[in-house]
Design a protein around this nucleic acid. Structure first.
Length: 668
DNA sequence: GCGACACCGCATTGAG
DNA sequence: CTCAATGCGA
DNA sequence: GTCGC
């Protein structure tokens, strides 16, 4: 069976690395061991870490090198891929409006996306003379569990090959709802539903709403933040070069440092992935001392006339809890919204801003949990910031720009011929079902996911550290593991009491994730609009330009998951979370934890175990058994690749169960 | 044929 | 008034 | 758009 698996991967997924086969084997082996260990309690604990069949960090998602080479040898079909992607956009326009649920359209357009990227990365062109064979090979390589393209997909490819274009007028014009959606797409906060409502009410554009008084807008169902956003059309936010993003971030960093010395300010999003331009900017804030609840204060500072960065606020963080000098939690007197009825919102600068400023020096009034970091901490933080990749390969631009194909491998290696009677393989769904009984056993998590003791993935750390003994990552992990009793991390929220252990939690079980667990802290999310500083030699004809800006902060124990979540890309996040889900884990920006299923509970009703303390991105990868990937290496086109390894894992697990205990050869 | 497909917080609305 | 459902952006 | 039920 290993042979079958290996040959399958070789045949249909030539871009998968040999490491994938190792992972597949190791995971199957671990699954079997896990089911044994669950019988004997504590066996996993007693077992020496060295003897555990832990796989070397391997990649189920395409490895960085694979992604790079994939994109580098972009296909012979850039035009076709582009057509399909554009058709997807048109289709999205229709579906957004016609579908009752937003969730549906996302995946509909996503399917086009996926298909388009697969075409883009397919290394040899489709030709009319051998189209049928090409399509079959392509289908088997990209969707082995199905083995064929859909009729629609075949149609599209054929149409392009024969006519050189893909007609999509039908999609663009198909629905009046789509037109409504398009008319208001530029307004933040107006989605499919409101767009249709407004259209039927007789409005045809965002500008026609601008003239209305606030009361009328409210009666039309336009939310307050939508009304505020009316003056800023989304399309006016052209993509901005990195340098500009950096300047904005520098302002934020400067103010944040004044407010909260030692704070770590990370620019997330596409900027962090290294793209040459960004449509918005994500500012992520962390502090080593643990809580980092200064978003309202920071927003207030950035809104002051003398700073003038933020010109409009779309969403504010909720009520903020922080600890005062006596260790009591109380509400942070943040921003006060003064003008709900005016288009021009008014924000009162915080009365406590003074106290926040002085708190750095005195630690008396205001949020005094702020402590100055040690010199060592300061150096660590700086070193970490330096790890952000300096050279940004703009992979997306390469992918969509139709770079000339430069195959590194021969066609035969890339696209082996497919026998017509190739066996059908398990689909992702089927795979998940096979894995499900296994994942209920905590032993899997213990063996595959939970590192034995020192939970730091030093090898996968972002960059080589200079000192080995007192390397930052080691120290962090110690701090993290001690955090449950450490006073620098909040013990738990006093207003929420809950049991942290799944066994005991019977009343809280129905309430979803238990956020009272140690290390959990409510993040603060802000969305707003920044007025860009006038560029030095900019033509004044353009007028002021604006930038969507998000400022968010998390507790230090959530730093890793938050960084991963807000670095993206989107597809990468979804793949990662879905993957975690299949492994019995829950992953979001704020927590990674075991997902505990209870037998009689209806499907989908779950509650989550105590979140892990995840201060480093590398922890997330490590816990999932994945190879660490730098931010600029997190472009994911093929969700399918992840599935393929899971299929094999499921197949091998099933085989090994049927074949008794004969699986000792798998993990070496 | 129909639900699911990743996840979460906030604002608004409407029912109780 | 509270609570649940919905829309929305992310 | 696709899969599982």
């Amino acid at each position: 069976m290993v042979t079958r698996a290996a040959s399958l991967i070789d045949s249909f997924h030539p871009w998968l690395s040999p490491a994938d086969a190792d992972l597949v084997a190791a995971r199957a082996h671990a699954a079997e061991i896990g089911s044994e260990a669950s019988g004997a309690s504590g066996a996993a604990e007693a077992q020496p870490a060295a003897k555990r069949p832990r796989p070397a960090a391997a990649s189920v998602l395409p490895t960085p090198a694979q992604t790079r080479s994939l994109v580098a040898r972009l296909s012979g079909n850039p035009g076709l891929a582009g057509e399909v992607l554009r058709a997807g956009e048109a289709y999205q326009g229709v579906k957004v409006a016609t579908s009752a649920r937003v969730g549906t359209h996302v995946f509909k357009s996503d399917a086009f996306d996926s298909f388009g990227f697969r075409l883009a990365l397919w290394p040899r062109p489709f030709r009319g003379d051998s189209l049928a064979d090409e399509l079959r090979t392509f289908a088997w390589a990209t969707r082995p569990w199905h083995g064929a393209l859909t009729a629609r997909q075949r149609e599209r490819v054929t149409e392009f090959v024969t006519t050189g274009r893909i007609a999509r007028g039908d999609l663009a014009q198909a629905s009046q709802d789509a037109t409504a959606r398009l008319a208001f797409r530029d307004v933040h906060g107006i989605g499919p539903s409101r767009a249709v409502e407004l259209w039927t009410a007789g409005f045809r554009s965002a500008s026609s709403l601008l003239a209305l008084p606030p009361a009328s807008l409210r009666s039309l169902g336009v939310a307050a933040d939508s009304a505020r956003a009316l003056r800023f059309a989304k399309s006016a936010f052209s993509r901005h070069p990195r340098a500009l993003i950096e300047r904005v971030a520098a302002t934020v960093r400067e103010q944040a440092a004044l407010l909260f010395p030692g704070i770590e300010v990370v620019i997330g999003g596409s900027f962090r992935r290294g793209q040459s331009t960004a449509g918005d900017v994500d500012i992520l804030l962390f502090h080593r001392d643990g809580p980092c609840a200064l978003v309202p204060a920071l927003v207030a500072r950035l809104s002051r006339p003398e700073c003038g960065l933020l010109t409009e606020h779309l969403k504010l963080p909720g009520p903020v809890l922080c600890m005062d000098a006596h260790g009591e939690e109380r509400e942070f007197p943040g921003l006060r919204y003064a003008g709900p009825d005016s288009l021009r919102s008014e924000w009162e600068a915080i009365p406590d801003a003074e106290s926040a400023e002085t708190s750095a020096g005195e630690g008396r009034a205001g949020p005094s949990l702020v402590r100055l970091p040690s010199d060592e901490q300061q150096r660590d933080a700086e070193a970490e910031l330096a790890n952000v990749p300096s050279r940004p390969p703009d992979l997306l631009a390469m992918a969509t720009g139709g770079t000339a194909a430069s195959p590194l491998l021969s066609e035969g290696e890339l696209c082996p011929a497919v026998p017509p009677d190739s066996p059908r393989v398990a689909s992702p769904r089927e795979t998940a079902r096979v894995l499900d009984p296994l994942k209920r056993q905590a032993a899997i998590a213990a063996l595959l996911l939970a590192p034995s003791s020192g939970n730091v993935c030093a090898a996968a750390a972002a960059a080589p550290r200079t000192s080995s003994s007192s390397s930052p990552s080691t120290r962090i992990s110690k701090q993290a593991s001690l955090s449950r009793s450490s006073s620098t991390f909040p013990a738990r929220h006093p207003h929420r009491q809950g049991s942290s252990c799944a066994n005991v939690a019977s009343t809280d079980a129905l309430n979803g994730p238990d956020r009272s667990t140690p290390g959990f802290h409510e993040p603060q999310l802000y969305c707003g609009i920044a007025r860009l500083p006038a560029a030095a030699g900019a033509p004044p004809s353009e007028g002021p330009s604006y930038l969507r800006i998000d400022i968010k902060s998390w507790h230090w124990s959530q730093r890793g998951t938050a960084l991963v979540a807000f670095t993206g890309n989107n597809r990468f996040n979804r793949a990662l979370r879905r993957y975690a889900d299949v492994l019995g884990l829950h992953l979001s920006d704020r927590a990674m934890c075991n997902r505990v299923l209870q037998g009689e509970r209806p499907a989908g009703d779950r509650w989550n175990d105590e979140p892990r303390v995840v201060t480093e991105e590398a922890h997330v990868f490590k816990e999932l058994g994945l190879e660490f990937r730098q931010p600029h290496e997190r472009l994911v086109f093929f969700v399918d690749q992840m599935h393929s390894a899971l299929e094999e894992a499921a197949g091998l697990a099933k085989d090994s169960r049927q074949g008794g205990s004969a699986s000792s050869n798998s993990a070496t």
